[in-house]
Amino acid sequence: MDRFDEIVLEWIKTVPSAQNMAGLNARSDLIGDGVLDSLAVLDLVSFLEGRFCLSLPVEEFVPENFRSVAAIADLARRLGGSAS
């Protein structure tokens, strides 16, 4: 877990549907288990763009990039985000 993972995990924990998910970790399947639905993903994108000062190209708006905390953190790093 680096800084990116931690920040993303903290945010995911605030999603109401994450509250009853036991053992939430960086690899948990957020989409399959219904933690991130199509509406929560929008809030997440707003958060990522603000927190990491990045802009998500439309091609990156695909489920693979949001499947887990690790995938989301990778995405943020790949798009040149800054975790400071």
Partner: peptide
């Protein structure tokens, strides 16, 4: 496809 894969398993 993109759309479908945003659904949860039970959906």
């Amino acid at each position: 496809r993109t759309w479908f894969d945003f659904f949860s398993d039970s959906e």
